Simulated scan of single mutants.
Amino acid sequence: MRRSRRTTAGALLAAGTLLATAAATAPAGAAPAPGPAAGPAASPPLAASAAAQQRVRDYWTPERMRSATPLDLPAPRAGTAAAPRHQGATATVAPTAPTAPAPELRSFPQPGGPWTGGGAIVKTSGRVFFTFNGRNASCSGDAVTSANGSTVLTAGHCVKYQGSWHTNWTFVPGYHDGQTPYGTWTASKTLTTPQWEASEEMNYDVGAAVVGTLDGKRLTDVVGGQGVQFNGAYNEDMYAFGFPAASPYDGTKLIHCSGRSSKDFLLTQDHGLGCNMTGGSSGGPWFASFDEAGGTGLQASVNSFGYTFLPNRMFGPYFGDEVKALYERAAGT
């Protein structure tokens, strides 16, 4: 994970990075956050045809997946972060997941470790692979309940970064030890919040993808879908999942953290959680409500970034009205 430092309001702060390892420097003098935007931004069509989707699946060989490197991004900039709007009542979308035997419950909190409980989460969560500026990269993501049965939530920088929409975008649910037990699902469209699209504002580092069918089936027909929560509360017990690839992890296993979350008091309005996940976990789901026995919950954030001076703590954006609009657009595509 790359670390950097900058001076903010006369104090020397160690700038946080996204949960990543490979270097990718943001352009200097980035624009300040824009005013209210019209709606979620969407990529140009990606692999829209069946033939195009198959070409992307063929591209992602096991060797390319193993060698893909996660992205890196600077921390939020002081004075540019607009707080997410919390205007409506709390809204939820119920999960749709396959049933599973109840596992032995784990200790709470969990600062970071392999998920051994089974349940729906081992199918709905997965690794994300894409090409960014000519190199292969990776993140994490999660299949969620949706009208189209084909929606994946991830981080904004996992669909678009430095003005470029990623290509060859693929979701691999249930990835483990180099295996793709539920196939590889190619995006026909990726989307992000207007705030991330315009100025890569960390409060809105959320992305979505609409994936094509595979063997005539939709994504959530095969793996199920987690629920989603918007306009929820801060300072709740939360669970986070992802596929970190930087030491001490290697990207081959689903890792989880759990504990009482808190609101970022520095440069964002994000949720914070004690967690030692590293590069590659960006975009993995956070749950404000999670049933360990069945592995299902209500997703309320994604892995986004960390501050260097707060080791073993990561942050994820608040799911407010803007993220709700993003989800609705993706789910209705």
Results as ranks from 00 to 15, higher is better:
73 L>H: 12
126 G>T: 10
206 V>G: 01
120 A>V: 05
146 S>Q: 00
99 T>Y: 04
193 T>G: 05
98 P>F: 14
255 I>N: 04
255 I>T: 09
250 D>V: 02
77 R>P: 00
27 P>H: 08
290 F>V: 08
315 F>V: 01
139 C>L: 03
126 G>K: 10
303 N>D: 12
246 A>H: 12
148 N>W: 09
1 M>C: 08
167 T>A: 10
275 C>E: 09
33 A>V: 06
248 P>A: 11
212 G>F: 07
23 A>N: 07
279 G>K: 05
174 G>E: 07
98 P>T: 06
233 A>M: 05
204 Y>H: 13
328 E>P: 00
300 A>I: 02
154 T>K: 05
249 Y>Q: 05
49 S>Y: 08
304 S>W: 07
23 A>P: 15
17 T>M: 10
325 A>K: 11
299 Q>A: 10
23 A>L: 14
13 L>T: 11
267 L>M: 13
158 C>K: 06
17 T>S: 15
69 T>W: 01
237 D>Q: 15
290 F>S: 05
327 Y>M: 05
328 E>F: 02
121 I>T: 10
329 R>G: 03
296 T>N: 14
102 A>M: 02
280 G>Y: 09
165 W>I: 02
258 S>P: 00
112 G>T: 08
185 W>C: 10
278 T>I: 00
171 F>E: 01
68 A>D: 05
48 A>D: 06
38 A>E: 08
171 F>C: 02
11 A>N: 11
140 S>H: 06
199 S>L: 04
165 W>V: 05
132 F>C: 03
213 T>V: 03
69 T>C: 02
286 W>F: 15
118 G>F: 11
105 L>R: 14
212 G>Y: 01
314 M>G: 11
332 G>N: 15
235 N>S: 15
96 T>S: 15
194 P>V: 07
292 E>G: 13
54 Q>T: 10
255 I>M: 15
31 A>D: 09
329 R>H: 06
247 S>K: 09
86 H>I: 14
219 L>R: 02
116 T>R: 12
29 G>R: 09
159 V>L: 03
41 A>T: 00
83 A>C: 04
267 L>Q: 11
68 A>G: 04
326 L>D: 03
233 A>Q: 15
310 L>T: 09
72 D>N: 14
30 A>N: 04
22 A>N: 11
327 Y>R: 04
97 A>W: 05
113 G>Q: 12
191 L>P: 00
271 H>F: 15
111 P>V: 15
265 F>S: 13
102 A>S: 14
224 G>Y: 04
75 A>K: 00
107 S>Q: 12
119 G>P: 02
281 S>I: 06
